Amino acid sequence: MLARRNPQLNAHGELIHLLSTEGLPRDILTHILDTAAQFVSVSDREVKKVPLLRGKSVFNLFFENSTRTRTTFDIAATRLSADVYTLDIARSSTAKGESLLDTVANLSAMAADIFVVRHSESGAPYLLAQHVAPHVHVVNAGDGRHAHPTQGLLDMYTIRHYKKDFSNLTVAIVGDVLHSRVARSDIHALTTLGAAEVRVVGPRTLVPGDFGPMGVRVCHTLEEGIKDADVIIMLRLQNERMSGALLPSSQEFFKSFGLTPEKLRWAKPDAIVMHPGPINRGVEIDSHVVDGRQSVILPQVTFGIAVRMAVLSIVAGNEA
């Protein structure tokens, strides 16, 4: 029986869609990070454009709210000289009941080349990738609780920028891991890139034991989770995805798992602190940590532009 080909790759093993970090080989992840490194300096130029996607049309379809991801994709595509169209979902025909596939079919008829899709339903970008024409590419900007691959990649770029080598790193992912597509994308990328130890940290209601088979260590106290860590990735409480009372209160969560300057001392002195945003100060992280010397939260956003430029340029250069 033939092995099923990864839907993100063509027959030559080249990236044609970015749907998840899961299943992507190490050389492709490294290629994206290396390509992003070449784009970082574009932000410092007087003219912040390169012609790699000139004549291409990029459609941003965000069925969920977004600030950083949508804006950085807009900037990334514009800096690659693409024609960028961001659909106003609330005023589009989807509000009249048009299906996702019909929406994309109609936009494809307008000569779309790349769809950047954020959707509340896990698997929506995979569905689109199965139905678009061979020359059209799909980039997942977050689907339900499943994956957020470009956030995972910009996190990997940030870690590599400050720590250079993954093989000696202990990385702690803290907070609402259960509902976090970022956590899943980070875990798959970290394990593929060879991180020494990956920990998921939080209360039992938000960090289920089934993360163990993914090759990570599950910790239910913050001290155990971040002790001697090199990298701490904090996650926000995703109340919009929770059903039922998973926590007594946000105040109780902060008391046990909120990262403060005092608790940060459990990690290594040169540990970096990350957060995908939006940040809830005083819930998962103290303002003194957000604005402190070990925080690399704002550089993450800056690196996100270069990483998304890399992804868009790579998929656009490959044929199905």
Rank of each mutant, 00 (worst) to 15 (best):
A77F: 00
A141S: 14
L222E: 04
A77S: 10
P51W: 07
T221Q: 07
P248E: 14
V218S: 04
T94N: 06
F254S: 11
L246K: 13
A129Q: 05
F303V: 00
H31R: 15
V307E: 06
E64L: 08
H119N: 09
R181M: 11
D74T: 07
V139L: 13
H220Y: 14
Q130A: 13
P149C: 08
K48A: 09
R308P: 05
I232R: 01
I159S: 02
N239E: 08
F62I: 12
G258N: 04
G282V: 11
P248N: 07
R217K: 15
R184L: 12
R91C: 08
E223C: 12
I114H: 03
T205K: 12
A36S: 15
L312R: 07
T78A: 13
D27T: 10
H161F: 12
G277R: 11
T30K: 12
F303I: 09
Y162W: 15
G282D: 11
G144T: 02
N65E: 09
H148A: 04
H275K: 09
G123D: 08
L169N: 05
G277H: 10
R241M: 07
S41L: 13
P261G: 08
L80H: 02
H146S: 11
A129N: 05
D143A: 09
Y85K: 14
A141D: 07
T158K: 06
I226E: 08
A245Y: 00
F253Y: 15
A76Q: 04
R26T: 10
S41I: 07
A306R: 12
F39G: 02
